[in-house]
Design a protein around this nucleic acid. Sequence first.
DNA 1: AAGCTTAATGATAATGATTGTCAAGTGCAG
DNA 2: CTGCACTTGACAATCATTATCATTAAGCTT
Lengths: 139, 139
Amino acid sequence: MKPPAAQVGVRSTRQRIAVLDALTRLDDFRSTQELHDFLRSESQEVGLATVYRTLQALSDTGDVDVIVRADGESVYRLCSRHHHHHLVCRRCRATVEVQAPEVETWAEKVATDNGFTDAHHVVEIWGLCADCGLGEDHS
Amino acid sequence: MKPPAAQVGVRSTRQRIAVLDALTRLDDFRSTQELHDFLRSESQEVGLATVYRTLQALSDTGDVDVIVRADGESVYRLCSRHHHHHLVCRRCRATVEVQAPEVETWAEKVATDNGFTDAHHVVEIWGLCADCGLGEDHS
DNA sequence: AAGCTTAATGATAATGATTGTCAAGTGCAG
DNA sequence: CTGCACTTGACAATCATTATCATTAAGCTT
C-alpha cells in the first residue's frame, strides 16, 4: 500500500556547496546576481534561479543575513561576524565601510526598550565624497 | 542673449496637492501603488507615474520618510521636520519613531572624517514587537 | 551496486515594481 | 493674455525576483 518513502529532507548538492563556499570567501553583502557572476567567474556553473533559491533557503534558516538596499535589491552575507555599515557617495557611488560599535549598542537598546526582540538594523549614510563634493552647487 | 526665463522652480499642481493630501490623511507607511489606488478610490485621477515622481521628489526634499520593506517595495509616509528614525515590527508593521541625537552626531562625524559633505543618513531597526514576538518560534 | 522516490536543478517565461520616453497639458511671471 | 518651462499621463522598457516544468541526481532500500 504505502510506497517505501525513499527519503525526506534537504540534500547536499554541488550547487549548494558552491554558493555556501562563495559566501564564506566573499564575506560581505552581495546580491544574488553578484554571487552568480562570481560563481561563473570560477567556472562553477550554477543556475541563477538556483542561487536565488539557495540564498532564500539560507536566509529562512537564519544562516545568512539579508538586508534590502535603498534601491530595493536584497543583499546577503554569511551570518554574522563583523557587522558594518556603509558610507556611500550619492554621485559616484564610492563606498566606505564603517564600523560602529556604539550604533550597534544603541540599536539593540532601542529595540529592547520598546519591547522588540530579534532586532536587526540597517544604517546607511549618503553624502558627497571629497572628489564629487568639490565644485558642488545644488540648492 | 539670455531667454526671458519664464520661471524656475516647483509648481503647485492638482496632482501634487492630491498626493500630499492623501499622505496627510493616511498617516502611515504606504506604497506608491497603494497611494495610487487610494486616490483612484476618491476619483482623484492621478497617473501612476506621477505618483511615483511626486513621492520621489518629496523624499528628495525630505518631506516624506521612505523605508524599504523586506520584500523590496518602498513605502512612504509624511514626516515631521525633525529628523528621526524608525523601529518597525517585521510582522505587523507597527512603527515607533526613535530620536537619536548620538546617532546624528556619529553619522556626521563619520561623513566628515571620510571627506564626505552634505550627508544624510537612514537608520532602520527591524524586529518583532512585544505582541508579535510572544509565541514566536522561528529557528 | 541497482532501483526508486522525490528533492533539486536549470532554461525560460512570467510577474511586478519602478523608470524612461515623449507628445500634450498647464502654472505662472511678465 | 502669452509663452515657455515644468508637469503630466499613457505606455514601453528595465530589472530583480518568482513560477513553471521537464530533466537530473541524492541517497535510502534491497
